[in-house]
Amino acid sequence: MAVVEVNFRGVAQTKVASNIVNMVYQANVEAGRTGMTFLRWNDSPQRVGIPTKIYVVTGESLEGIEGTSIYEPETKNVSVALDDTMLFGMEAGGNLGIESLADGIKEKGLLVIVTEHDEETIKKYLPEAENRYEYVLVRGKAPFAGLWRPLESSEMTHIKVLGAIARYYPEVFTYEEAKAVIPQESMEAFEDGYKNSIHGEMTETGIAREKPKWPSWKELPKYANVIPAVEISGKNPHYSKGTTKTDIPVINKEKCTKCALCWIICPEGCLVRTPDGYYDVEKKYCSGCGMCESICPPKAIKMINLIDYKEEKLEGGQR
């Protein structure tokens, strides 16, 4: 059995992600095998921007997964990330903590990343896993073709991903098997993903993340719905929203007039007043919504892609 996991951002990428797993499934069915797909419902695939997962399991039989609706594989063959900022981890709704894209990846498994950044940059941020794995960089923008935009507006990224899987992990499906389900007009994108993706190997290994353990009904606090809260004006570490963002605000203090509009509008309350009257972003709690950027009268705030931010490519912004 082969397990493919697609990591995506809720609502904005749900359609693209579902399309990938459905086509993997379809190709396997056409090739005489069977399978099943599982959207991780316990996360929040219906909430904008929150990272979540969808799995497709394929093989000769459904043994072991038949009768399952909540599927959480121990290991996976292929992990796809539809947005490279998920390299910094994904904190889904499931209170499973921050998960890594490479959690549970098999020896010689494949991590597929949709990115516009170059290989050297991405390599710096590749997550360590228990096993050695290979990576493939599919060239393109993060596809945000969700609820309101047609799939084609994703620049056919989903088809490119299928091309990359067919070439570097043919155990899921071969080139011929995939071709049988790719529409004629999408073949160009398929070939592009097949031929032009960048392939390499991640050899550094780390330790497996511990999975949380849950108490029995007798171990739970007696009135279980009451839990310690944060102090007034404090912030809840359990709801940091740290991985919801793809972009982060950068404030140019030379342009800032200290008008405090960003501080007022921020829905997460993550702008902090500094002693000299300027504002800093408490990055952990920023959800990347960009409202501060849109309200700033002197345009002193600019949203910067997370990887560019780490690389200090600030494009006129200032830390």
Partner: peptide, 16 residues
């Protein structure tokens, strides 16, 4: 002693 009452357990819901 600030506490959260009726906290969302939906995400943990399957566990709690």
């Amino acid at each position: 002693k600030p506490m959260t009452y009726g906290a969302q357990v939906d995400s943990e819901g399957l566990m709690v």
